[in-house]
Design a binder for these strands. Structure first.
Lengths: 226, 226
DNA sequence: CGTACTTGTCACAAAACCGTCACAAACCGT
DNA sequence: ACGGTTTGTGACGGTTTTGTGACAAGTACG
């Protein structure tokens, strides 16, 4: 369920990489230029960015520096894609704050390996790690939720919502925080919509004798009790 | 209430936005150009600035950079208003340090939502440190109170009240002080209302064999004994 | 196309909460 | 013991917050 942003202006490469990453189970958002990439990151912080060295509107390193300078995106894992393996380029890339680089042409296998490595390294915060609390188990990789082995069917949004709660059990989250984390920073959504989705989630969980896991904290928000 | 500075040179938009914000209960100060805005911020730091992209004397981004460079105004939440949704502009705006942006034309509803979100996000975190006194434990992060592990259910107000007492045990607090700290500085509430909530709190705590933790100090107020 | 599913929003219902009052009880100095 | 003052308590009405059912728009998919 990891969110990957691919910033690449060459359509053939973009298609190839996106296809492979999707096949590997990642959620891929593509951007053709730096401006689009900034907006995409702004809307939802991806787990990883694949960033092409050459972009039509701005050098990739420039964009990278921009992200590094911003607190919210400072630790965003970035894998740079460089056309040639010129050492100078690589130095510049790492200097700008790239976590890793890959020179074209690269094999699909190598790409996947690097991506996985970066995601794993960047995750003390388990986003690909499955979470298990009480009788509930949620696996982001396979997008499955089970209660004592029995699968529970959830909509994508409900899944993200539940995942968010299970990542920090017993913590109270305000509706604003929930919106930011589950929907994305820049969405324009009614706070009360959270309530509705909480209800739907509760309803589904209740079918598996889990009616008490999500608790209302009046005036504060909701929390997962475990 | 919250003080908002609106920097916008077009009278029609200024009037519209100001009207709506005032109706929403904000205290709005308007500036027609960058120079006036600087003076206004200098005079009183607003809780939020709505900054137009195009100003007669200076670009809005320029003004924003000026603020960001100054310690006093560095963390001032700024919501930029851009005329067109040109991605280029948005990038520049965020680059200059805008906290959010809004493209004209925008709905009143959306404006309010963004303003509210920014103000809420800017609010300093409430104390998240948990307090433990005797058999009682209060954790603001999870909004839970427990007596030897047993959860105690409290209303939001009771929670804040208890938290206040536990932060300074064995301290006598007058009703006025309690009102200021728990209800807020300038509320118009009967002093005796404190008594009622103390009673309710005591009642709940009594169920957990904690009937003696809140003591009455005749003529002085109440105190938490620990 | 049509169908099933997802998602955001609304309007109303239900529940919880809060402030206040009136009166009872406790306290204090004399 | 007494009058005045302070505090405790039960009850009540109004307000705020949350739950819920319904609906419409959008999406995916055959």
């Amino acid at each position: 369920m990891s969110h990957i942003l691919l910033v690449e202006d060459e359509p053939s490469i973009q298609a190839l990489v996106a296809l492979n990453l999707r096949k590997a189970g990642y959620d891929v958002v593509a951007a053709l230029d730096a401006a689009t990439a900034v907006i995409a990151v702004d809307a939802q912080l991806p787990a990883l960015v694949l960033l092409d060295w050459m972009l039509p509107d701005r050098p990739g390193t420039d964009l990278l520096r921009h992200w590094r300078a911003n607190a919210r995106t400072a630790k965003l894992p970035v894998l740079m894609l460089t056309a040639r393996s010129e050492e100078e380029d690589i130095v510049t890339a790492l200097d700008a704050g790239a976590d890793d680089y890959l020179t074209k042409p690269f094999s699909v296998k190598e790409l996947n390996a690097r991506v996985q490595a970066l995601l794993r390294r960047a995750k003390p915060d388990a986003t690909t790690q499955s979470v298990e609390i009480g009788r509930l188990r949620l696996d982001p990789l396979t997008a499955q939720v089970t209660a004592e082995g029995e699968p529970i069917k959830l909509s994508p949004l409900e899944f993200r919502l539940l995942h968010f709660f299970m990542k920090t059990p017993n913590h109270v989250h305000s509706r604003i925080r929930i919106l930011d984390a589950v929907w994305g920073d820049h969405v324009f959504i009614e706070e009360r919509t959270v309530d509705v989705h909480i209800r739907r989630l509760r309803e589904t969980l209740a079918k598996h004798r889990l009616e008490t896991v999500i608790e209302t904290v009046r005036g504060g928000g909701y929390s997962f009790v475990g």
